[in-house]
């Protein structure tokens, strides 16, 4: 019984995390692209910042995923 509940709740947990970080990534990358379009000469710096920010946002989904892997089923 416990196992079957977890089987439903793990994917839901990961998908909620993915929705959140998807929205966050969309905003971050969208703004970065806009900024790059406005100032193409600063593209390198903006890209570095964007990748770092994207890594921080994406890490949240990864943590949810790791929880699913590591918590005993």
């Amino acid at each position: 019984m416990k196992g079957s509940i977890l089987q439903f709740s793990y994917p839901i947990a990961v998908s909620i995390a993915a929705i959140g970080s998807g929205l966050g990534l969309g905003r971050a990358v969208g703004s970065a692209m806009e900024a790059m379009g406005r100032q193409p000469e600063a593209a390198g710096k903006i890209q570095t910042g964007m990748i770092v920010g994207a890594a921080f946002i994406e890490a949240l989904t990864i943590y949810a995923l790791i929880t699913v892997f590591l918590v005993p089923k």
């Binding site: 890594a55 890490a59 990864i62 943590y63 995923l65 790791i66 892997f69």
Partner: peptide, 16 residues
Amino acid sequence: LSLGLRLYGNIYGEDV
């Protein structure tokens, strides 16, 4: 800790 977890999670998730 987060630096290690991020890399591990990404690569392990990819393998899975």
